[in-house]
Amino acid sequence: MVSAIAWRLGTVTDITDETTTVRSFRLDVPGWPGHRAGQHLDLRLTAEDGYSVERSYSIASAADGSSVDITVERIPDGEVSAFLHDTVVVGDRLELRGPIGGYFVWEPANGGPLLLVGGGSGVVPLMAMLRDRMRQASTVATRLLSSSRHLEDIIYREELDRLANAGDGLEVIHTLTRSQPVGWTGYARRIDDRMLAEVADPLGSSLRAYICGPTALVETAANALSRLGLPPDRIRTERFGPTGT
């Protein structure tokens, strides 16, 4: 079968530092069948002795021919993320399969209003949704609540500012949980019930929510939205585990 399941080779065509620990990789993947925002791909690294290891990464880019971006946080002791950060250079080829997953997917045709909640690198699949929303000139009312530790840890900060200033119905709300710059007017604590209630309120009661991040953050946000009365079928979650995989 055609498919998402076959392993393919992608060539790294660009590498971008997003923060000190987060880097984006653009891959050119001949035969890539296209993807929907929120899907992911599996990367497989194989050593000369045959030892191999796989990791799943959210796709960061909107569908664009054979080009696919992933954004990877360097995890301490992370076999794959360390290799990607420390060893991979433009021109290298990587083994991958995808796109995978139909559960944590949003497309402009799915409508809204849309509440996106991301913690740390959990913003990556949400960024794919925002990029696809922009690409398709969607004006679906959308709010992104992004939680980061420090200002310099915000992934895609400049692009998010640009998207939010486009005047097409997107608002981006940041919370900084560890330190805040002088004059910071955004939230300055971990996501909690009150914050979610405030962020969700302008979207009304018919919103759809997509929550991605560390497991504890996703649990907190999903439970808070349930308590606000959002039915389970309008809450989609993607948990990374303790700090990501």
């Binding site: 799943s56 559960y103 944590f104 497991t215 585990g241 303790p242």
Partner: peptide
């Protein structure tokens, strides 16, 4: 350490 079933999708 819990994640979603998505993690095993591939």
């Amino acid at each position: 350490a819990m994640v979603d079933g998505n993690a095993l999708a591939g």
